[in-house]
């Protein structure tokens, strides 16, 4: 007799996903880049590269360098802008059943709020990911993600203008990431995703010059996984909204670690560059794990970490959003 397949579906705010595996923004383009190699409908959700109101050229080259266990990038959020995305990519994405989450960013609170509003009632867009954590742009980006007051203001402004499920993407470049997760929760975010890349740099010692044209960049890949895991664990204990874990997932093993630590869903990033089918392998591996551990659903695994010790929860409820 065939055993029933485990239920992989998860819910993030109002968004229902058939499985917990998403693509991390900036590592999967806008979808068509990978569609010739895989069926995008098998993904939990497609998170597209960050979109701003106006087209953005990004940084000069070199923009990318491989470092031990990771990747350093300073692309600078190059994107076709809202109009370009709607014209060039959205019609393509509408052919798929997988929910589409648009990562948005701006230089000012007004820009964030304006772009968020423009995605209301746009068929084919199922959620927004608020990028307040990109280390590679000079103004905006990470400045909103590392200052609690700024974070509160930008999340509140965006929440007021969007009717879509809202995920706030957090920066790891803070002392206590859970504090920012609580701000996101208090200000109406439906979920938090973490982590974005770590500010980092690499130097060509022969030339005595930075390898990246932008001098510094963001570190991603296996090197950051265990740091991300600790941050996801701390965050999941501090908020009631779903947590989406990301950072150095190359196989189901890291994805499952995030889920056990408390993440309701995960995103695969840098691994898409070396193994374009990584997301599918992660989905398959998660399913096999649930079967092997006789778990009826992925939800039964979320936050099941046994520490064998009584660890006090992080301090009480966050301050109300003002």
């Amino acid at each position: 007799m065939n055993k029933p397949k485990p239920d992989l579906s998860v819910r993030i705010g109002g968004l229902v996903m058939q499985n917990p595996v998403m693509t991390a923004s900036g590592t999967f383009g806008y979808g068509p880049e990978f569609a010739r190699l895989m069926d995008l409908n098998r993904l939990g959700a497609i998170v597209v590269k960050g979109i701003s109101l106006k087209p953005t050229q990004g940084n000069p080259t070199p923009r990318l360098v491989e470092v031990p266990g990771g990747l350093l990038n300073a692309i600078g959020l190059q994107n076709p802008g809202f109009d370009g995305f709607v014209r060039d990519y959205l019609p393509f994405l509408r052919h798929y059943r997988a929910p589409v989450i648009v990562n948005i960013w701006g230089h000012t609170i007004n820009e964030y709020a304006s772009i968020a509003e423009r995605f209301n009632d746009l068929p084919g867009v199922h959620g927004l990911e608020l990028n307040i954590s990109c280390p590679n742009i000079k103004h905006g980006g990470i400045a909103f993600g590392t200052d609690p007051k700024m974070a509160r203001r930008v999340i509140t402004a965006v929440r007021a203008r969007t009717r879509l499920p809202l995920i706030t993407k957090l920066s790891p470049n803070v002392t206590v990431i859970a504090e920012f997760a609580r701000i996101a929760e208090a200000c109406g975010s439906d979920a938090v995703s973490l982590i974005n890349s770590f500010p980092a740099m690499a130097i060509d010692i022969e030339a005595r010059r930075p390898i990246l044209a932008n001098i510094t960049g963001g570190l991603t890949g296996p090197a950051i996984h265990t740091i991300a895991l600790k941050m996801v664990w701390e965050t999941a204990r501090a908020v009631k909204i779903p947590v989406i874990g990301m950072g150095g997932i190359t196989s189901a093993r890291e994805a499952l670690a995030f889920i056990i630590a408390g993440a309701s869903a995960v995103a695969v990033g840098t691994a898409n560059f070396s193994e374009p089918l990584s997301t599918l392998a992660v989905i398959k591996g998660i399913e096999a794990y649930l079967v092997r551990h006789r778990l009826p659903s992925i939800r039964a695994l979320v936050g099941t970490l046994e520490t064998g010790a009584v660890i006090p929860k992080p301090r009480g409820p966050g301050r109300p959003c003002a």
């Binding site: 590592t27 880049e33 590269k49 080259t61 070199p62 923009r63 990318l64 990038n73 190059q78 560059f273």
Partner: peptide, 16 residues
């Protein structure tokens, strides 16, 4: 020839 990432047009590393 440029520093290349994904090779699929997604990462925007190898731009000219």
């Amino acid at each position: 020839d440029r520093h290349m990432g994904c090779g699929l047009g997604a990462c925007l590393a190898c731009v000219q």
